[in-house]
Design a protein around this nucleic acid. Structure first.
Lengths: 190, 190
DNA sequence: ACCTGAACACCGTTCAAGT
DNA sequence: ACCTGAACACCGTTCAAGT
């Protein structure tokens, strides 16, 4: 993704982009915000847990489709309008569900960190998601069972029935987090 | 971090590196594993919750010091020996604490996703951690209160006493996750 | 074996010049 | 106003040449 490539993609010759954008960072900011635009916004009226689940799944799908947008998060500090709008709706949803500002922050930052981190991990997996490629990966690792006995044992137990896919961990982890948040919300209401 | 720069840092002139390393990716693989080497290993005998907390805090500190190692995670699929060793010890700790392979996977992937995602978010903050810079950030955002009313209200409530720092969210989020895992462990033991 | 300089095909960005 | 080509200072990598 170079300036010259982007320009070629647009059938404009190379350096005309600089008349529409100050530099490459700004162009990437724009692209990143375009990606965040595709993440489902929470419905204002919907129950908080469903809303958070839907937005987390949507964010994972979008960021999985555009992994470069994740790298953007790291290096590009100024959030674009799409991200701010999303933030705003999430906080609105939580606040109307009775979350204090502190609890909303806890929920927001924990869920987001989980989503970003999971997508990051998923993007680095040596196999495409699904398709049972995890089994062949396990076989690779088993070769070094002497050095990593617990990994070997763990893989063996986990893959025993052949139906394991790492992708499922997303829903499980998310539910774990939402359980804990729900518990906090209950405690704060009492 | 270019090949030419790295070489200059080592007082070796530019392209001698290629006699010790096949290409830049391999060099980065090595650097990434050197970073993971610095993350505390869990003590085999220690209780699982303390172990997971210590390793999460250590990972956050190390990755915060070397943010480029995070980018490594995304693009470099083959885990180095330090990362595998760390994995092995974590699984060992959980398994000896009575975690099933499935539950250990849930715990591991959720905690790791959270840690990676949190560091990623923290690295992109427009201010240095601590130092009360978050207050000035809030002032910036407040300027667009019309467009983002919930963000504005949330920031106002959160920063009312001036003691808020985003960095504290790490411990809170981690405890939330560990609470949920502890609950699952209890349920599976019964 | 180890190092090096020149060279190649790329970058992002600037700038003077075209329409 | 918008586009463009040449140019500059960088990349990663190759390769022939040095010790």
């Amino acid at each position: 993704m170079s300036m010259r490539n982007v320009a070629a993609e647009l059938d404009s010759e190379a350096m005309s982009l600089y008349h529409h954008v100050p530099n490459k960072d700004a162009l990437l900011d724009g692209l990143a915000d375009w990606a965040f635009l595709q993440i489902d916004l929470p419905d204002p009226g919907a129950p908080w847990r469903e809303s958070m689940t839907a937005r987390a799944m949507s964010a994972r799908a979008v960021l999985g489709r555009h992994p470069w947008a994740l790298g953007m998060l790291e290096s590009r500090p100024n959030p674009g309008p799409a991200l701010l709008r999303h933030h705003d709706r999430v906080l609105g949803c939580l606040s109307e569900a009775g979350f204090s500002a502190a609890l909303a922050t806890h929920a927001f930052s924990t869920i987001d960190a989980f989503v970003y981190g999971f997508v990051l991990t998923e993007a680095s997996l040596p196999f495409a998601p699904g398709e049972g490629a995890e089994a062949s990966f396990a076989a690779d690792v088993a070769a070094s069972a002497d050095d990593y006995p617990y990994i070997a044992a763990h893989r063996a137990e986990l893959l025993a029935d052949g139906s394991y896919t790492y992708a499922d961990e997303f829903a499980v982890g998310l539910d774990l987090i939402l359980d804990a948040i729900e518990e906090q919300l209950r405690a704060s209401a009492a």
